[in-house]
Design a protein around this nucleic acid. Structure first.
Length: 803
DNA sequence: CGTACGCCGGTTTTT
DNA sequence: CCGGCGTACG
């Protein structure tokens, strides 16, 4: 199918008569190009160099998105390109949305939507739907999520009689993804790599691809891989796209993998009007296939490229920039940028060591409250403007525990994504089946959810019936029901399920109800809602809440099909904005964000830089970790606080660690060393203690803690001694009691000892005591906790979640 | 077929 | 220390 004339994406958004270079356009958009106002010379150069290859090296906070959107505006404004002739690619939906909004704003709504502004995946889906048959798919192919993918791989492993221990589905998925990222089809995997996995991996890869074809499905990696394959084997199609996409823009180029790189290079090879924006210093996704090499090699790939460096930073203070630059300077083979700023000096980066992880969390909690109140003698910093950035998500727990206890509102960014949650996937599987009864994976998922007495044996019977008749599982189930191939209860239940599926399917086609009503009906009639209503685990109310949320989300779509189509690609986590909260997230999740105050805890060797990263990838791994440090520091606008703990409980065992080597790389002149609480006057290196000393004496006095800290080997480490040698110490942390704490007694007065209560994180429990505004609660699952009263509700109120 | 217990393993994450 | 998963029973 090479004829695109019907695709609205290629329809001229602007009548041809109005299309003109430079001249006639002014009439359309007004004479002046307001989008150029306020750009610095480098940005302006990047915006105005429209033709030929351009590499925009944009350091952190240098107005990259601004330049990129201005460039699009410029292409449109000068009439160089129409909106549908511009291909603009991002990695995330969020970035795509942002760019769309900003272009719209710059152009004053005059421009119709840009059809080819989107993520790599969204754009590839659009293309692949048109050419699916060239890779053996139908244009209505489904896109599998990770969960489907894993279940499929597991089936293949089991079917192949392969030991699941030696070939865990997760590992196989990782290997296959890796190959797809490099644009290797099953037949293109280099012999050496194939041999590295006993050739079994390739065998399974081929089987997996064959199975996907059978299911008329593909996974995320396929979207790119298939398009690259099509472009490489069908020159006419490639030519067409090359003509259509007259200008190409790529965001976060340092994160592209080989498949994405090939796709871009193929599309750009004719006219070479490609503008890539990126920062080699912020390449932090090497472990999932990103190739920094792509950006380092740009000038070789596109000889004569215009290279523009954006080095003026509009985000951070000079001290923060200097600290970040100091750390990243240790990396080799950088393209090299020197960030500068006009901003006032501000505060130095603050560095503090703690006895253990809990102490660190406590200190940061108090510090956040102090900043919020402006107690430190400066403008108050709202909670929305503060963030804690950690290396690994398990570090979040210490903060969550602490913040729950003191009642500090927080939000975890990038947790389990909405559409990845169990209940959402189950519900979606029902919707998928209502739309198409061919969806075998969806059927397998829900056939026994809720429990219908249809276990492995029953499923096997259904599968056999389906296979021998060459039909879908739903049809197979119908055959089983009609032929009474199962026993009493299971048979009856299966009959009910099949009837339900038929009914829902019919209703989808008739469109007799609104799709929201239909969705709600499906979830009710299938017994899925009831399943969670009867569930007494602490998660159940939340899951029901999520289901309600899901039905609400349907509002934005025409019908169920439309919804399913979009959800496959939009795994976004729309974070609800309810009140001021501190953000807690990983360093990876923080890329692209900025906060006035940033806390960077856990700077200990082994944790950050991560031991595993260094073990697996050696110097390359260490350098990526260092870039992560760079990304972390450069998120801060005003106040950046780095901390580490001498001891940490990891897998239930106490372990001590040395301060991160990155701390040694911080330039002294831009760092202020704070004194940990209990160490007024500073600690002095004493003889090291045994490394497994238990610091589990939490409620000890400060002087006791001091004594302990005194002896800890961390204070005798090279990193720590360096801090001492700098001799800059200043007490910061005030005891919490010294600050005027407002205690909300209204919440606490609602409870008495013995009440059953519900807490969103800890679940159900019973109040054992009341101390000030805190409740001491024994939770059914989570054990004894002290929690601020406003974070719990009476247990009977919690079960009252209507659906 | 569903539940209870014991064992293993345990970064980073988007689409 | 915690959760997911697989095996062993009811």
């Amino acid at each position: 199918m090479n004829d695109f004339s019907e695709d609205d994406a290629f329809e001229a958004a602007v009548p041809l008569s109005q299309r003109a270079r430079a001249g006639g356009v002014a009439a359309r958009f007004g004479g002046n190009a307001a989008y150029l106002d306020g750009l610095n010379p480098a940005q302006r150069a990047a915006v105005e160099a429209l033709d030929g290859p351009v590499l925009m090296l944009a350091g952190a906070g240098t107005g990259k998105t601004r330049a990129l959107t201005a460039r699009i505006a410029h292409l449109l404004h000068t009439g160089t390109a129409r909106p549908n002739e511009i291909l603009a690619v991002t990695f995330t939906n969020k970035a795509a949305r942002e760019m769309k909004n900003r272009v719209g704003r710059l152009m004053g709504e005059t421009v119709e939507g840009m059809p080819w502004l989107g993520t790599f995946h969204a754009i590839c889906v659009k293309q692949l739907r048109r050419h699916a048959e060239l890779v053996g798919l139908k244009s209505n192919f489904t896109i599998l999520d990770t969960d489907d993918q894993l279940r499929l791989l597991k089936q293949l492993i089991v079917a192949g009689g392969i030991d699941e221990k030696r070939w865990p589905p997760r590992m196989l998925a990782g290997i296959i993804d890796g190959w797809k990222n490099k644009a290797y089809g099953p037949d293109k995997v280099p012999l050496a790599e194939a041999a590295a996995f006993d050739h079994k991996g390739v065998e399974l890869y081929a089987a997996y691809q064959a199975r996907l074809k059978d299911l008329n499905a593909c996974d995320f990696g396929d979207l790119l891989l298939h398009m690259v394959t099509i472009f490489q084997t069908h020159e006419d199609i490639l030519r067409q796209y090359q003509r259509w996409f007259r200008y190409i823009l790529v965001d976060e180029y340092q994160d592209t993998n080989v498949a994405q790189y090939l796709w871009l290079r193929l599309l750009a090879s004719a006219h070479k009007n490609i503008c890539c924006v990126g920062d080699d210093d912020q390449s932090i996704y090497g472990w999932r296939g990103a190739e920094v090499g792509n950006i380092l090699r740009f000038e070789t790939d596109f000889p004569g490229a215009t290279v523009v460096k954006l080095e003026q930073n509009y985000r951070s203070t000079p001290h923060i920039l200097a600290a970040a630059s100091g750390v990243i300077a240790s990396n080799k083979g950088r393209l090299g940028k020197t960030l500068f700023t006009d901003a006032e000096d501000g505060e130095k980066v603050r560095l503090i060591g703690h006895w253990d992880g809990e102490e660190e969390a406590r200190w940061i909690g108090e510090e956040i409250e102090a900043l919020q109140r402006g107690t430190r003698g400066q403008d108050p910093v709202g909670l929305d403007n503060q963030a804690i950035l950690v290396r690994a998500s398990h570090q979040m727990r210490a903060f969550e525990d602490r913040f729950l206890t003191i009642g500090l509102p927080y939000r975890v960014i990038g947790g389990p994504r909405f559409y990845e949650r169990l209940e959402i996937r189950d519900a979606m599987a029902y919707f998928r089946l209502a739309v198409s009864q061919e969806d075998d994976l969806a059927f397998e998922r829900i056939v026994n959810t809720p429990k219908r007495g249809l276990g492995d044996k029953a499923v096997q019977t259904i599968q056999r019936a389906a296979r021998t008749n060459g039909v879908s599982l739903v049809e197979g189930a119908r055959i089983v029901v009609q032929g009474k191939l199962l026993g009493g209860k299971g048979l009856r239940e299966l009959g009910v399920l099949v009837d339900g599926l038929d009914r829902w399917h019919a209703q989808v086609r008739q469109e007799s109800d609104t799709h929201q009503e239909l969705a709600e009906m499906i979830l009710d009639e299938s017994g899925y809602t009831g399943m969670w209503q009867n569930d007494k685990t602490p998660e159940a109310p939340g899951r029901l809440e999520n289901l309600k949320e899901l039905v609400k989300a349907l509002d934005n779509f025409e019908n169920l099909q439309g919804f399913l189509e979009h959800v496959a690609l939009i795994m976004d986590n729309e974070t609800e904005q309810d009140g001021e909260k501190v953000s807690i997230m990983t360093l990876h999740a923080a890329k692209g964000l900025e906060f006035p105050a940033v806390f960077l805890p856990g700077w200990e060797d082994g944790l950050f830089p991560s031991q595993r990263s260094m073990d697996e990838s050696g110097l390359k791994g260490l350098e990526e970790e260092r870039r992560l440090a760079y990304v972390g520091i450069t998120r801060a606008e005003e106040i950046c606080t780095i901390s580490f703990a001498a001891n940490r409980r990891v897998y239930g065992q106490w372990q001590s660690a040395l301060p991160s080597r990155f701390i040694d790389e911080l330039p002294e002149d831009h760092v202020e060393v704070l004194t940990p609480p209990g160490l007024y006057g500073g600690g002095y290196g004493a003889a090291g203690m045994s490394t497994n000393a238990s610091p589990k004496l939490r409620e000890e006095s400060m002087s006791d803690l001091h004594q302990k800290a005194h002896d800890a080997n961390v204070y005798n480490s090279p990193g720590w001694r360096r801090l001492q040698a700098r001799g800059q110490t200043r007490g910061v942390s005030q005891p919490a009691e010294a600050r005027n704490m407002t205690i909300d007694m209204t919440a606490v007065s609602a409870f008495t000892t013995g009440d059953r209560v519900f807490h969103t994180k800890f679940g159900y429990g019973e109040i054992k005591g009341i101390e000030g505004d805190k409740l001491s609660i024994t939770f059914d699952k989570a054990g004894d906790k002290h929690v601020v009263a406003k974070f719990v509700v009476a247990a009977d109120a919690a079960s009252d979640v209507p659906f």
